[in-house]
């Protein structure tokens, strides 16, 4: 087990390194510079600024300096945000994104599983079809459309919620719906199909032959076995919901990290772009890693014995 974790960790470091390099190269290949502004500056000032941020050195040297600092967990100083450190900027803004993200992930999993189970149990009956309709809408309508629609109906017309901002618990409702509609639909379809498969399997017949009641069979025997595809999806979902909130954060004016991400790219704020990209990458890898570990929790066959897969 330790070897497995260590192995995974080394691979994560390697992919992180590749990602940092690629982002660094791409970022510098894009025309424009963080020091360009509408105000005309004299060449001397320009030169001094470049020297101050180290932009006058050759790219390879800049890259080396960046890596050296990164090894000390220092993401540098933002070039646009009044000399604040990127570490602090991320820590300050991630709070809101994380809260919204976690609420959305929890909503997606709970609602998705519930819909999926209902659809599977009432296979080809009214409730199954109803769940299908909800799923198709959830999958087909992108969050960019869903969000303004929700704002218009529930905040402008009905005035049940605030249009934007994230000040009280009620303010989470609309962004959460917008963020989790697609994942709910996706999870519902996943659970439905895997549940239908599991319900037809031999061991469910065994459970019935034992005289267990229907709900016991679903809870104890069927659900856990149909959860595996959802666990696979979960790693992707967590990262996706937190990064996917880029758009939603803009629409609902939530001061989260997603908003900064877009802004940093527009500003060519090099340290900030790098910082957020690395941060997202770590987040994504960590959630994938966690979902790998969650597999073993759900399915005992995937539990590891001294570093190799038990079969």
């Amino acid at each position: 087990m330790v070897r497995y974790v260590l192995n995974k960790f080394l691979f994560m470091l390697l992919s992180l390194f590749i990602l940092i390099t690629a982002t660094f190269v791409l970022m510098n290949a894009v025309p424009g510079s963080p020091l360009q502004s509408e105000k005309a500056t004299s060449p001397q000032i320009q030169k001094n600024l470049e020297a101050h941020y180290g932009l006058d050195k050759p790219l390879i040297v800049q890259y080396g300096i960046y890596l050296k600092k990164l090894a000390q967990f220092d993401l540098g100083i933002s070039m646009k945000k009044k000399f604040q450190s990127v570490n602090k900027l991320i820590a300050g803004s991630f709070d809101n994104s994380l809260k919204l993200g976690l609420v959305s992930v929890a909503t997606s999993v709970l609602a998705g599983c519930a819909l999926g189970i209902i659809a599977a149990l009432y296979h080809r009956k009214f409730l199954d079809n109803a769940a299908l309709v909800v799923s198709v809408i959830g999958l087909a309508v992108p969050s960019v459309v869903m969000a303004p629609l929700l704002q218009y109906v529930f905040a402008v017309k009905i005035r049940a919620f605030e249009v934007a901002g994230l000040n009280g618990p009620m303010d989470y409702v609309l962004p959460t719906i917008a963020l989790s509609a697609a994942p709910i639909a996706f999870i519902a379809r996943l659970i439905r199909s895997s549940m239908l498969e599991v319900l037809n399997s031999d061991f469910i017949k065994t459970a019935k032959a034992k005289g267990l009641a229907g709900h016991m069979i679903v809870w104890r025997h069927a659900l856990r076995n149909s959860m595996l595809p959802v666990v696979t999806y979960l790693g992707y979902l967590i990262a996706n919901v937190i990064t996917g909130s880029v758009v939603i954060e803009q629409i609902f004016a939530i001061p989260g990290i997603g908003k900064f991400f877009v802004q940093s790219v527009l500003d060519r704020d090099y340290p900030f772009i790098m910082g957020i990209t690395i941060f997202y990458a770590i987040l994504l890898m960590a959630s994938r890693f966690l979902s790998d570990l969650a597999y073993a929790l759900v399915d005992p066959r995937l539990r590891l014995q001294t570093g190799r897969v038990a079969k």
Binding site: S201, D202, F203, K205, T206, A207, A209, R220, H221, R224, N225, V298, D299, P300, R301
Partner: peptide, 12 residues
């Protein structure tokens, strides 16, 4: 049942 490989719940 016929097939003991599939007749037991793998996660229990």
């Amino acid at each position: 049942f016929q097939d003991p490989m599939t007749s037991l719940n793998p996660t229990m």
